[in-house]
């Protein structure tokens, strides 16, 4: 049978090519200055178009266009498991100085929910870049005018108030609300939370299915301008700057001592070389200070929040502890 020879031929060639290709990853000396010698890959652990993807692509664009880094920078999407698939991929790139990734609070939350083997401790934090904050909105004709009114009613009759957000329980939109509500003295185990992943949260508040929409500040601006919803509180420490958002009261000024930051920054694989960490830290600092990136921040409504590797790590550890205790109280930690 002649055609079976084809099959064997295919196998032989494949195996030969495979055998002849011991991949040689050169380890760079850890002493002195380090500069990249081959293209850098930035992983967005999500599909095209989301927040992580946008941040990664914009950073790569400015790095290249402003000549901050000479090597090619490619953005690669590794979607799945809310980030878990991408993290598992990076975890396999131990010590590489050419594989970075972008992340935000889910890298702390998702491991605590038992949905990822890897958390922030497994990676090398390089630099945090930007911050965003949570906003809690209700329909414009709702009876509550501030967070305290709302939380008062929640304490009295928790079953009558529904909170809606895009993520599943234990993830960001849920936790940011819980964190503020808990500080206000609400029994967090009685909060009714519905997840609508198709972005229907706003719709549900507008048509009265749900009462409170837990989301990001940027998502509320246009609806507030149009008088459809009102924002009862935001999770930043101080008032935000900018048209409309400067009118949003913080939880702090309403006497609730709690904040929540949706930070976003870059990480490297486990055990990244110190010289490389230093290199990237500096480059991200330059990026953060550049006019081009400032323009991008403004376009997307992001706040500047640079942290270097060391303070970033300390910040993450603190975040983890805080959220861990919240999840413990909810009985959701795994």
């Amino acid at each position: 049978m002649k055609r079976w020879i084809t099959l064997i031929g295919f196998l032989v060639i494949i195996l030969t090519v495979t055998a002849c290709s011991g991949k040689d990853e050169k380890a760079t000396g850890s002493s002195g200055d380090w500069t990249p010698e081959k293209p850098i890959e930035i992983i967005a652990p999500a599909g095209a178009g989301g927040g992580w993807d946008t941040t990664a692509r914009m950073a790569a664009k400015v790095f290249t266009e402003e000549g901050l880094i000479d090597q090619d920078i490619g953005v690669v999407n590794k979607p799945g498991g809310g980030g878990a698939v991408g993290w598992a991929y990076i975890a396999g790139k131990q010590k590489s100085s050419y594989n970075l990734f972008v992340s935000s609070p889910p890298i702390v939350l998702i491991p605590l929910n038992g949905q990822s083997e890897y958390g922030h401790e497994d990676f090398t934090p390089l630099a945090n870049m930007i911050a965003d904050y949570a906003a809690f909105a209700v329909s414009a004709d709702a009876k509550w005018d501030n967070l305290n009114d709302l939380f008062e009613d929640m304490k009295k009759d928790p079953a009558s108030i529904t909170v809606v957000g895009a993520s599943s329980p234990g993830s960001m939109d849920h936790i940011q609300f819980i964190q503020i509500a808990k500080a206000a003295g609400v029994d967090v185990t009685k909060i009714k939370y519905v997840s609508d992943q198709e972005g229907g949260g706003l719709t549900q508040v507008l048509n009265g299915s749900a009462d409170v929409y837990s989301t990001g500040v940027a998502e509320t601006v246009e609806q507030v301008k149009a008088g459809k919803i009102k924002v009862l509180g935001v999770s930043s420490e101080e008032r935000l700057e900018g048209e409309v958002i400067e009118d949003f009261p913080t939880a702090n000024e309403q006497g609730i001592d709690a904040t929540f930051v949706n930070w976003r920054g870059f990480f490297g694989p486990p055990d990244m070389d110190d010289a490389a960490v230093k290199y990237y830290e500096e480059k991200f600092k330059e990026l953060s200070d550049s006019q081009a990136f400032a323009d991008i921040r403004e376009q997307y409504g992001w706040d500047e929040m640079y942290m270097d590797s060391k303070s970033y790590k300390a910040f993450l550890d603190e975040q983890k502890e805080e959220i861990q205790s919240l999840l413990d109280e909810l009985g959701l930690s795994k």
Binding site: G80, G81, P169, S195
Partner: peptide, 14 residues
């Protein structure tokens, strides 16, 4: 989405 429970995933992140 409503509970965060993993269903029929066999512990596989994918």
């Amino acid at each position: 989405a409503q509970t965060g429970t993993q269903r029929f995933t066999f512990g596989n992140v994918n």
